[in-house]
Nucleic acid binder design. Sequence first.
DNA 1: AATGAATGAGGGTTCATTCAT
DNA 2: GATGAATGAACCCTCATTCAT
Lengths: 192, 192, 192, 192
Amino acid sequence: MSPRTNKQFEEIREQSRDKIMMAALELFATRGFHNSSISKIAAEAKVAKGLIYNYFDSKEDLLHAIINQALEEGDQFIHEMQNIEDPKEQLRYVFNLAFGMMVDKFHYSKLLTSLSLQLDQFPGIMKTIHDRYKSTIPLLEHLLQKLGIENHQAEAKALAAMMDGIGIQYIVLYQDYPLEEMKQYLMNKYDL
Amino acid sequence: MSPRTNKQFEEIREQSRDKIMMAALELFATRGFHNSSISKIAAEAKVAKGLIYNYFDSKEDLLHAIINQALEEGDQFIHEMQNIEDPKEQLRYVFNLAFGMMVDKFHYSKLLTSLSLQLDQFPGIMKTIHDRYKSTIPLLEHLLQKLGIENHQAEAKALAAMMDGIGIQYIVLYQDYPLEEMKQYLMNKYDL
Amino acid sequence: MSPRTNKQFEEIREQSRDKIMMAALELFATRGFHNSSISKIAAEAKVAKGLIYNYFDSKEDLLHAIINQALEEGDQFIHEMQNIEDPKEQLRYVFNLAFGMMVDKFHYSKLLTSLSLQLDQFPGIMKTIHDRYKSTIPLLEHLLQKLGIENHQAEAKALAAMMDGIGIQYIVLYQDYPLEEMKQYLMNKYDL
Amino acid sequence: MSPRTNKQFEEIREQSRDKIMMAALELFATRGFHNSSISKIAAEAKVAKGLIYNYFDSKEDLLHAIINQALEEGDQFIHEMQNIEDPKEQLRYVFNLAFGMMVDKFHYSKLLTSLSLQLDQFPGIMKTIHDRYKSTIPLLEHLLQKLGIENHQAEAKALAAMMDGIGIQYIVLYQDYPLEEMKQYLMNKYDL
DNA sequence: AATGAATGAGGGTTCATTCAT
DNA sequence: GATGAATGAACCCTCATTCAT
């Protein structure tokens, strides 16, 4: 009969794109980018190999799409955080967010951390991730300053390092890592 | 043309093995394991491709050898550390060592951190690295306890996380990262 | 909303078919058959990929259709030529036609010449093109005989070769080729 | 024992390279470049697929190598021709050479002619073949001038076209084409 | 008549590994 | 101990073709 409407097509596309990105995210995070073949991704997404290229120009383009999605989500949270007025509330929000992401978005978190260490191999995302790293510290500095913390500049860097370290240790040790304990430690430290 | 003695043979073997491991380490660290072909390693080591298989069973075996070498070196340092009596001296030694390694053994450090995040891909080294992560904390706990630090258990975990976080941020940001400043921060914190 | 008449349907069909064939002709001629994907043809024709299969069984079938169209046009001209009585007029007609086609039907001309050299790849059109080549010479022979040319059999073959040679050189060198000069040369030679 | 000498390696390389180029030449000429897969070439050459990339960077590089070999051979003959003093002898040499090549180097000849018509697809060889076409005519002009032929410039172009035309017709009709007769026709025409 | 999402075979290419010397 | 030619599985990607709408 008559062909599908544009809207129908868009819905179908959205769904397929998502299926592929979800499958790729999981594989990239658990097996690594180079170890996750397009075939495996397609199988995981229950989709034909060729279809992936209907949505992404290349395997790297698929990776970029995933990363950008992750970063956009992150940007949104930072935005929301900046709408909070009380600095204590802000820091509590940051901790809740950061620890929550480690758990709920484990794959995103693992993939991004992994890629951070392989930036030489992915020049296309180098700047993006570099910038992300650099932009975190001023944010924390400002926050700690508002909280009246002494030596807030050094403390911000230390806190940033600790957060990253907790992240990586949680990724490596997972079930064995006392994530909640670490969160409490920080909450206490900043009297939240 | 007198035949070479056994000792000469062994020296030659040792040299070739070393050349290969050095070349592989650099490539693995900078370009990643999957991105470093045996051909490239052989070229970098100025050695024929086939020779690598005289010394290592497989590419993964070569990786294992490198990791074990790194870990053995680490073990040795821990041993030396434990011979120091004064706990302050001990902690100073730990910091000097850790920060020194980040700079002097940058490739080792980067490779090990990278691999930590890809353990699923290398089940052969999973346990080794897992154990390494887990064994660090009791060491620090003990040290902080001897220093009379309150809440030494939580503090040890926090310190371990911070050290890892500093490591990863230095790897990512490199020249832009204030490594020395972070070291001073820790030295001050523990009054060294 | 009255249903479309049969005639209207047929017109629509004809138009779509034509659009597709024109697009395919241009792509086949400029980029080659194997380098012109159905997708590109559809895009060029501003038509959905699937529609092409409403009109043609396969990509090769589309090629056949184009070739046959070209050959039919050629047949028609030969027919018209044979209605001319004066042999000089006939030859003049042939030259005008042949040189005119090289310019006006450049793509047809290029495609057919190209395919002539790849007949092994397209057995379906082999006989057709073979026959076309063979049928040209008797025609010219007859013509030159009527013009009273000595040794008309050899001259006909030579003329046929020269025409093909001019064609291929024009295709290769295009703007750099003195097509008009060659035409004058032949007109003079046969005193037209 | 001891590894092969450099000379042994070179011989082996030469042989394999040649096998591959021969197989590729035949396939490219008969089935076309895009229709000759690396797999088929390897099978024809009785060699593993991967080996081809030990000798050529890419499929196109393999094509370039074949073309350059062909053109170099051609250059050599032109050089030899220019050492002949008597112009009649020279022209006879040209005819013998050209007609001889059509038969003895049928595949080369077919491949080069085919590619001439697909230059848009192979920008890398465009200039080379263009130049080859353009350089032929002055050579013939000079030759016909020395032979005292009237209107030698137009005649040279006509002769060049005829040679190309004979070539293409021989390629298309092959056994059915009176190649020898055409050669005699030309020999007579120029009184050789 | 028309759309374009979906399929999967097959293309070019890379690379860990083997082996004769 | 050392060489590098040779292998073939597996990679990323393209594309003719099908089909539900």
